[in-house]
Amino acid sequence: MREHYRSEAFTEAELAAEPMGQFDHWFREVATGGLHEPNAMILSTATPDGRPSSRTVLLKKYDPQGFVFFTNYASRKGQEIASNPYVSLLFPWHQVARQVIVTGTAVRIGRDETAAYFRTRPHGSQLGAWASAQSSVIASREELLARYDELATRYPHTERVPVPPDWGGYRVVPGTVEFWQGHANRLHDRLRYVAEDGAWRVERLCP
């Protein structure tokens, strides 16, 4: 199967001075262009001996310091990050022939920042964070639903759900950020920011 990519050039002259500004520009374009879940990103982690794992998570915030997502710290991704903080992110915006690839270090955000985000989640999602011991083995779906129902009884909509102690956010602090634009004949544009001595260097990669 072959895909005919768009042919508008993507050049160094168009780039923002730093990668988060360029990401903001592209993200706003895809978010307003009708792309389904533009904040979905593939997070790849690895064990200390280099065994990788990947999954899709949702970007919940980005700022000049990096990209923020939330999870159970005891999950597989959380355990791997605890022993090896080097991760990668991939935003696969295939419908517009664009990708953003990030490599960097995942660091926990503060509990105040986590709590502030947790309060914005729907009530059911707050209960779900307690009900699921993410990545652990469970006997059946019925057991999971029973946990949820018990929590729903304990914390009805009128009750404030506390933040689970093992649940929180990570900020991926980028070391490289690549912006990939597809073109015809596989002559894609690949422009990568590289952190170097407190500044950003831009380089072009062969497709």
Rank of each mutant, 00 (worst) to 15 (best):
K61R: 15
L15F: 10
M20A: 00
A97F: 15
E8H: 12
R6D: 10
T114C: 13
D149F: 07
S44W: 06
T153H: 14
R121G: 05
D49W: 03
E178K: 10
V163S: 01
F179R: 01
Y193T: 01
L205K: 15
I109L: 02
R51P: 00
R76H: 14
D166H: 13
R147T: 04
V137E: 12
I138R: 14
D189E: 15
G50Y: 10
E14S: 14
H25T: 14
L144N: 01
E80G: 10
V172H: 02
R76Y: 11
Y86F: 15
V137F: 08
Q134E: 12
E8Y: 05
S140Q: 08
A115G: 06
P156H: 11
R201I: 00
A74T: 14
V57R: 03
V173P: 04
P165C: 00
Q134T: 09
S75E: 12
L127Y: 08
V161Q: 09
I109A: 03
A152K: 15
L59T: 05
R28G: 08
H94L: 14
T176R: 14
E37T: 13
P165R: 01
H4K: 11
E203P: 05
R154F: 03
V87F: 03
P52K: 03
A9Q: 12
V177L: 02
R204S: 10
D49Q: 11
P122I: 05
N84R: 10
H4R: 10
T56G: 00
G128R: 07
F23R: 04
L187H: 08
R6N: 06
G66A: 08
P122S: 12
F118C: 01
L205R: 15
P38H: 06
D197F: 01
V177H: 01
D197V: 01
R51Q: 10
Q79N: 14
L35P: 01
R98C: 00
W180V: 06
H94C: 03
W93I: 06
V173I: 12
R2P: 03
T176S: 13
P48Y: 09
I138W: 06
G34V: 04
L187Q: 12
E8G: 03
M20F: 02
L43I: 02
A97H: 15
G104K: 02
R160S: 13
S54V: 07
P156L: 09
N84P: 06
M41Q: 01
A46G: 11
A131N: 09
A195Q: 07
E159F: 07
A31Q: 15
P64S: 09
A31D: 14
A97I: 00
F67Y: 14
R28P: 00
L90I: 08
S132L: 03
R190T: 04
F10C: 07
V102G: 01
H157R: 15
A106G: 03
I138H: 14
V107A: 05
E8K: 12
E196V: 09
V30E: 06
V161I: 15
Y5K: 12
I42R: 05
Y148P: 02
Y62Q: 05
S44V: 11
Y5N: 10
D63M: 11
D24W: 02
V161C: 07
S135T: 09
V102F: 02
V163Q: 06
H123F: 09
S7W: 08
L59P: 07
